[in-house]
């Protein structure tokens, strides 16, 4: 399995992946802090408000709902792009590798890249906070829990996006589908069954404790885990059974 993952990683050379890893978090942080500073009085209305948490909420507003699902979609499309362009699928499928491994290796690479995006977000978040001179103590444990769980929440999402990018040869179509589905996250927020919606799950997991839409955290994690298991099993099965299109 290790060499399959390394194979996928190796193929990303010169694909300018770092642009997504850096630009998306940077943009989210800039927008978030902009919003935070613009509405400082409203956001910091209570005496015990921690500026880090308030700023985090503003950042994740953009990042969790829109930028994260969209970038995970772009990353999924990127790991499939080289395969679509010059017969990579044909090449891989005629090598002695099981199809399930091909799919899972690609998923592992996408998820690792998302983790990098997440860490880069934290990095810019801290830099930004230091630059605007936030005096409160950094809520380390909250930040890392939020980042870790929202990362787990991208697993289902990425599996679906990877499957779409495999089936659809173009780069733009899965991306457009993805953007539309990301916009539906706003609707998910107003609905009880919203936590089942894979595009909404990451932003739920990122929200600051007082803003959280999640009633029971263990319940939420079980939902995420179950949806992921089902979706992954389906995707791997479909991928293994699919015939090569011309």
């Amino acid at each position: 399995m290790y060499e399959h993952i390394m194979f996928e990683w190796f193929k990303l050379k010169r694909q300018k992946i770092w642009l997504i890893v850096l630009i998306v978090p940077l943009l989210s942080v800039l927008l978030g802090y902009g919003n935070f500073l613009g509405n400082y009085e409203v956001l910091m209305d209570k005496a015990d408000d921690n500026a880090w948490l308030e700023a985090w909420t503003q950042i994740t507003l953009f990042y969790g709902i829109l930028f994260l699902p969209i970038s995970s979609g772009i990353l999924a499309a990127l790991v499939c792009r080289t395969e679509h362009l010059n017969g990579g699928w044909k090449l891989q499928l005629s090598l002695p590798i099981s199809k399930a491994r091909i799919f899972i290796s690609k998923l592992v690479v996408v998820l690792s890249l998302i983790l990098l995006v997440q860490l880069s977000l934290v990095f810019f978040f801290l830099i930004g906070g230091i630059m605007i001179d936030i005096q409160h103590s950094i809520p380390w444990s909250f930040i890392f829990t939020a980042v870790f769980f929202s990362w787990l929440c991208t697993f289902t999402l990425s599996t679906i996006q990877l499957w779409l990018s495999y089936r659809i040869k173009s780069f733009g179509i899965p991306l457009s589908i993805n953007i539309v589905l990301s916009l539906l996250v706003f609707a998910a927020y107003t609905n009880k069954i919203g936590i089942f919606y894979p595009w909404a799950q990451p932003s739920f997991a990122m929200a600051a404790p007082e803003e959280s839409a999640i009633e029971s955290f263990p319940m939420f994690i079980s939902v995420v885990f179950v949806t992921f298991t089902i979706i992954l099993a389906l995707a791997v099965l479909k991928f293994s059974r699919s015939s090569l299109k011309s």
Partner: peptide, 15 residues
């Protein structure tokens, strides 16, 4: 034990 080239050569153009 099989090597193959089907229809058009497959490769990674970015490498």
């Amino acid at each position: 034990e099989v090597g193959s080239l089907v229809e058009y050569p497959s490769f990674y153009a970015n490498l």
